[in-house]
Design a protein around this nucleic acid. Structure first.
Lengths: 222, 222
DNA sequence: ATATTTTCATTAAATTTTTGGTTCATTGAA
DNA sequence: TTCAATGAACCAAAAATTTAATGAAAATAT
């Protein structure tokens, strides 16, 4: 899952980024409204965390412009405690939730999880494909009951595949959701990681889950 | 364990804060009802000590609003000796216990301990992970029978790990529960303390209890 | 004055990415 | 139908990068 943070206070942005990376999200940061708008417009984020008080372009304008352009990524607003009006305006203009500053990271995380779950069965924290099982809270993965150890990137990649069971995922799509802004198109890291994953989740089982579609991409299915 | 004190009398607040910090709790203080409500709402405290007589927002209202927002942190009320009615109302509105002013610190401490134990086996004051043993009353820690000397922070950190045996704890989570509001994200104190702890509890034993999950955090398990 | 807590710099280790040879599947010519 | 030729995918291992462990100094609190 890839998240954009639009926040000018370096310290706050850094704090959120670090916390989210510990949770294995891919995170980009924009330090003003203009940059935030462009990044959100050019990339397909799974979630945007948007501060309302921003230099160059106000958060509400970023929000409005994005919704005008039919970008319908979930947006979580960060507002000052007393900015009740902005909050209401924000929700009316299409934001999905808000949090007043200062906030505890655990609170932010809970809201992010809930926004990202939107659409899928609510309150569900487990993904299953065949006998492969992934818990999004504890980050534990097992197949056929046996626990499997994964590194951060391996975990993110697997989560993305499992969230999209049966859908064909091109390398471009994978790069957009599992890697961040600095991804280099002309590399085969994705192939290499698919290989790493296969070794861990498919190798010793006869029923393979991760399939190659030559010239197109990969798909996970039983 | 992190505790919030909502109390307008500076002297009382200071007295409790100091005493609790000596017991190695991380303590925040709010001096009026509004501030108390916001802090309690935004952070994940393990316990809240709430005076009923407060400026800006009355203690009962703080309590009611918190419970309405599904904040179910244990709450200990402080009331005047003759305010029987408020006490009853408070307990009905979801407070967990009360203490009439003035009170002895030891009495407060006993009740806090009992509230924090809630959920775990009653009357149990010991935490055990493998052959590592921690007594929450005497603050004594031993492994394999040998007593281990810990400083305050080391003790808090270890207690947090042991209360959450088997759960992966990110640095962000550790900071939220073992340090207080003023924690700086861009420091490696947590790493350093984990190192201190390991020297004392793991170094001479072959079976390590404190494990690193690279890029994510730490976990305590046998 | 002493012990604890925090910061800083260095070292060590694991993950991530790149590299480059190998294998595999598809396609068009024999 | 078979056989190169081609390009895509795979994979092992090296290189680069990131992250954690550690010792020691500095700051802070007792």
């Amino acid at each position: 899952m890839r998240i954009l943070i639009v926040e000018d206070e370096k310290k706050v942005a850094g704090f959120i980024k670090k916390g989210l990376e510990e949770e294995t999200y891919a995170v980009d940061v924009a330090y003003d409204g203009e940059e935030g708008f462009h990044l959100a417009d050019m990339n397909e984020y799974d979630l945007i965390i948007l501060d309302l008080m921003l230099p160059k372009m106000d958060g509400l304008e970023v929000l409005t412009r994005l919704r005008d352009k039919k970008v319908n990524t979930p947006i979580l607003l960060l507002t000052a405690k007393d900015a009740v009006e902005d909050r209401v305006t924000g929700l009316n203009k299409g934001a999905d939730d808000y949090l007043t500053k200062p906030f505890a990271f655990s609170e932010l995380l809970a809201r992010i999880r809930s926004l990202l779950r939107r659409g899928q069965a609510e309150t569900q924290t487990e993904l299953k494909v065949g006998d492969l099982c992934l818990d999004m809270v504890s980050h534990k993965v097992s197949r056929n009951g046996e626990e499997i150890e994964l590194t951060g990137k391996e975990y993110s990649l697997l989560e993305y595949f499992m969230r999209n069971e049966g859908k064909v995922l091109t390398r471009t799509m994978i790069a957009e959701h599992v890697w961040d802004y600095n991804f280099d198109t002309f590399t085969n890291v994705i192939d290499v990681y698919v290989n790493h994953l296969r070794k861990k989740i498919d190798k010793k089982y006869p029923a393979k889950l991760l399939h190659t579609l030559r010239g197109v991409g990969y798909v996970m299915r039983v």
